[in-house]
Design a protein around this nucleic acid. Structure first.
Lengths: 230, 230
DNA sequence: CTGTATGGATTGTTGAACAATCCGGCAAGG
DNA sequence: CCTTGCCGGATTGTTCAACAATCCATACAG
């Protein structure tokens, strides 16, 4: 064994992690736009003019264009050559594919969660959060809690990539929500169903939980499709 | 029914598709870089200097930066503030997550493919393509055929979003392949195993097919992890 | 009502400029 | 010998101004 000189124990600096790496102007611009879009301040179909965004953020057109490229890859925004960028409009086909994907993958999370008390507890917590928000009539918060519930479900699979897919998928779903102006009808029915799912899981009735989840997803898809062509 | 004036039959122009939608300079630049990276001409860890790329493609720095933003979102390239962009280095943790995801999702494709003769035929075709390439000693082609096999498998799920996830996932896997310089040892063992999987499926032995697939994925993961820390 | 000009607005792309930051080497000091 | 601090060149981050290409709305003619 080579005689290594006594150095600073590497463990001592291991926890520092990438020093928060700051962020560039274009990333901050992308963050700001992303927030505005997912919060519904920028409606689907709305055009984002380079000059206007640049002026609003106090940055240059070129930097705005960099942010647009990133958001375009994320699917929050659509870029058409020589026409500009528009907040993404979710089509019926998108909704169908989104729910097909969810029906395919969320059951995997359900089975993964079954033998993990901590995950079950996390799910229960999001359900109570949804119930609280529902009592307060804060339907946007109910919708968010619903998303967190299903995101937590997928998390149990332990796959980062799958998690990121669902982050993107739920962001798209928020775009669909944004064009439906009956938030209560949209979110209220599902608070109880999430509760039933988690109770089935806690009781070890995996099959019943999966059936309930599948029914949930089919109903939600039908409801959104119906609301979409108003 | 409204009296619609006799127009050009829509079928006649249906094949034109979005007029090739052309593409901007930055998209073409991204395409070129993407091709170079996935084909292994640009090795992981290699730095892409703005000025050099701009000069090589005959375009301006700003346009190159737009392309970089897109590639960065795709995960082919890593962008570090004030340091530049580098061809993505796949870590051991990445490999673990990639194969965890594959073991989770590919069985879904296997079950979907079972009652679809056309899909089984498509799989068989990729296996024979791999066998032909193997006999010719073209190990890069064997690797591609392997990827096509598993991509086809996932396709059977019918989810575009899942398909896109795997496109990205396989692009990352190619980055891992690029740093391993024993292509034969890397790809040869799996030609036969894919063949066995598809034969199990064709024989209606879904469980055996799943078991073989799972074993395939575990072995491949272990092999890549071993080759990665050389 | 359909088709065709026309002009203004917007996007696509470039080149140059400058500040901020990083990197490598080199000297000073223990 | 190893560390530390400092310097200068190279590279990135960002802006600005300019121009061509393209789109869009409007007006006009058939």
């Amino acid at each position: 064994m080579v005689a290594v000189p006594a150095r600073v124990p590497e463990d001592a600096v291991a926890g520092l992690r990438t020093l928060s790496g700051r962020s560039s102007t274009s990333e901050q611009a992308a963050d700001a736009l992303r927030r505005h879009i997912t919060e519904g301040l920028l409606r689907p179909g709305a055009q984002l003019r380079e000059e206007a965004v640049a002026a609003a953020l106090g940055i240059s057109r070129n930097t705005v264009r960099e942010a647009f490229r990133a958001l375009s890859r994320e699917g929050l925004v659509e870029h058409t050559l020589h026409r500009g960028v528009f907040v993404r409009r979710i089509s019926a086909a998108d909704v169908v594919d989104i729910y097909r994907t969810r029906r395919l993958l969320e059951p995997l999370g359900l089975r993964a969660v079954a033998d993990r008390p901590r995950a079950v507890a996390a799910l229960t917590q999001t359900v109570t959060a949804a119930e609280t928000a529902a009592r307060a009539g804060d339907w946007a918060a109910v919708g968010t809690a619903d998303i967190v519930f299903h995101r937590t479900l997928v998390d149990a699979c332990g796959s980062d990539r799958l998690g990121r897919l669902f982050d993107q998928l739920f962001a798209e779903l928020r775009l669909a929500f944004a064009v439906i102006d009956e938030p209560r009808a949209l979110h209220e029915p599902y608070v109880g169903r999430n509760g039933r799912i988690v109770r089935f899981v806690a009781a070890g009735r995996a099959e019943d939980a999966c059936a309930e989840l599948d029914a949930y997803l089919r109903d939600a898809e039908a409801q959104i499709l119906a609301a979409l062509d108003d």
